[in-house]
Design a protein around this nucleic acid. Structure first.
Lengths: 208, 208
DNA sequence: ATATAACAAGTAAGTATTTACTTTGTTTTT
DNA sequence: AAAAACAAAGTAAATACTTACTTGTTATAT
């Protein structure tokens, strides 16, 4: 009787739906990359980190590569979509730019490890589907930021001679700078100022 | 007789001194990372790429990790030292900044794969010696660029309110932008303009 | 000059371990 | 009773690295 009760509780904790397990596995991938590095990202390590067996992981994902694909798809469906709503809002270009940058910094902070995953997967030329996903992510960010800049230039607040590529180059330096800070063991509060800092530089660049 | 002659030629091609083999192995590491990705970087792949046996690789390097350490040491001894001579030259701050940026872009173009190696090794927290090397490389670049900017500000040509961190952030975006271009399959001539492009943005930032 | 000893550079075929992934069978939920 | 979730114990292939041995190079003694 008592054993059965315990078992029920245990299984209640353990037994989860595929969607929940998938989320846990994806999170574990980013965690492992962040804490132990890419080399430590094995299915065995994933099983230990998630607390489920190795075999079960392959019940929720067809392959290890599929987990990475799912994470990258999440970036597209969640992160890029948030950026899109910001860009399409009615706020001023400066406000939108600020929100755009802060959202990016915040996403990278919450999803530590995503930068490394994106860049290493991107360099892995063999998988064309993956490469296409990554291209789309980078391109979406470019297109969305272009829109804000275009609006600012149109309304006359920013220099019309500014190129989108210049602004984008600075924007793309955010993940590197953040990762560099992690390497350098910089304090966390420094990271929080990245958003405002980048805005300042960008505004200086864009200033009429 | 003829066999002996052939053997001599063959061995002349084959047999090499440790220094030469080490260079070949290091180059092969960067080549493999660039063409096939980090996942493909195995000692077996290295043996095939260099044309020597797996065992021989371990004659010239104590471990696989040691190859990465040697490459990173090269960055310090070659690349950083070139940057240092540029910074310490008698040219104007603008000229030095231009040369500084062009040298960086050129180095990254010739040593494709180095960016990925640096960043993935950096994220691998276990090895403190490696981490120290990387810290030193990043810090050297920071210190050297600070010197140029300081000289420019001192001589009154640049805004005294400019922070080194802002300039450094842009500078650090160069490797990412270059890698992104590789992913995006952009044309090679685009890459050649990176140096001037970055200078333009920096000068705009620094302008009094 | 030439023989020899010492060393450096090379290999093929191992090693144990780790890898991503599978199979088998059980338990839980619907 | 069907489907889904799970663990345990596999699998073959790949991994970094070693071993035992061969071959080439070079400095030294004759």
């Amino acid at each position: 009787m008592k054993l059965y009760f315990c078992k029920q509780i245990l299984t209640y904790i353990m037994r989860q739906k595929t969607e929940i397990r998938q989320e846990q596995i994806k999170q574990a991938v980013l965690d492992i990359i962040y804490t132990d590095g890419l080399k430590s990202l094995s299915t065995r390590a994933l099983a230990i980190r998630t607390g489920i067996s190795e075999g079960t992981i392959f019940r929720h994902f067809a392959s290890k590569q599929d987990i990475a694909i799912a994470i990258i798809r999440d970036v597209q469906n969640e992160f890029i979509e948030i950026l899109r709503t910001i860009v399409l809002s009615k706020k001023s270009p400066v406000d939108r730019l600020h929100e755009f940058l802060c959202t990016t910094v915040h996403y990278l902070q919450v999803h530590k490890g995503i930068t490394l995953l994106l860049f290493t997967e991107a360099s892995h030329n063999n998988d064309d589907a993956m490469k296409q996903h990554l291209k789309q992510i980078f391109n979406s960010q470019k297109v969305l930021m272009s829109k804000i800049i275009y609006d600012g230039v149109s309304s006359g607040i920013w220099d019309e001679k500014v190129t989108i590529e210049d602004a984008l180059m600075l924007y793309m330096s955010i993940p590197v700078s953040l990762n560099m800070d992690i390497i350098m063991n910089s304090e966390e509060y420094m990271v929080n100022s990245y958003c405002d800092k980048t805005l300042d530089i960008l505004l200086k660049m864009l200033h009429n």
